[in-house]
């Protein structure tokens, strides 16, 4: 194999050359993973908060299951979603297999438990400090959720980024339900898998470098916005 410097050089060249195919792949990766992350956040944050402050029978069991699901193997999720969406599966009529929508569904399944379980911990810790004060303001447990989510926004941002990391880096599920179809469902990770299987290890590693650069850029962006949210007067109503 060639040296790491050459890999970095190739990665840089890939980004700077503005290769149309590469940019299409990067944009599809972002589109799929950010959409999945948005959906997973909309489900996972309220779910995590409800598990943190709610008191209902079976709560401990649900928490255990959600926590365990953080470690769902992507391949298994991919297979399950594939069987659901396959032409012979229960949702075959929607014709979603081998589309970005199928990849989004698989990533939602992978990311939601991470967002829910980690945010539950964040909210639970916060709730320990705020429960009496919010109770004093007449807020019943479930009504405290919007306040708690806003109070925990800094930590929750990290939770959401962890979910993004899982989504953008995952290959096992999207390659099964997306099929790695060129110009349709090929994303960064499946492209890397393909180049690896072609033995183009330098190119694969260069693509990996691009992926990492992308992840760093997103994290930095969120960091900047997060700092602004902390310092300024929040617009939250």
């Amino acid at each position: 194999m060639t040296g790491f410097g050459e890999t970095l050089g190739q990665a840089l060249w890939l980004i700077l050359s503005g290769d149309a195919d590469l940019w299409a792949i990067i944009l599809l990766s972002l589109r799929v993973s950010l959409t999945a992350l948005a959906i997973a956040t909309l489900i996972g944050l309220p779910l995590g908060a409800a598990l943190a402050v709610g008191r209902f029978p079976g709560r401990r069991t649900v928490i255990t299951i959600v926590s365990a699901m953080m470690g769902l193997p992507p391949v298994v999720v991919g297979l399950a979603v594939y069987l659901m969406l396959s032409a012979s599966g229960p949702f075959g009529i929607f014709d979603l297999l081998y589309t970005p929508a199928a990849m989004i569904i698989a990533q939602v399944v992978l990311v939601t438990p991470i967002v829910a379980a980690l945010s539950r911990q964040v909210i639970a810790d916060l709730h320990t400090d705020l429960a009496e004060q919010l109770d004093s303001f007449g807020l019943r447990p479930l009504a405290r959720i919007p306040t708690l989510l806003w109070e925990g926004r800094t930590s929750l941002m990290t939770v959401v980024l962890a979910g993004f990391g899982r989504a953008i880096a995952e290959v096992g599920a999207v390659i099964i339900v997306g099929g790695n179809i060129n110009h349709v469902t090929r994303v960064m990770t499946t492209a890397i898998a393909l180049e690896t299987s072609k033995g183009n290890l330098t190119l694969a590693l260069a693509l990996g470098t691009v992926l990492i650069t992308m992840a760093i850029a997103i994290n930095a962006l969120v960091g900047v916005l997060g700092a602004r949210a902390r310092s300024g007067v929040p617009a939250h109503a």
Binding site: T35, V184, A229
Partner: peptide
């Protein structure tokens, strides 16, 4: 909230014209 706005912006930016009809 700001986080959701961020996602929305990112999503729109990432909307590739790959919707081959």
């Amino acid at each position: 909230m700001r986080m959701i706005f961020l996602f929305l912006a990112g999503w729109l930016a990432a909307m590739a014209p790959a919707l081959a009809g």
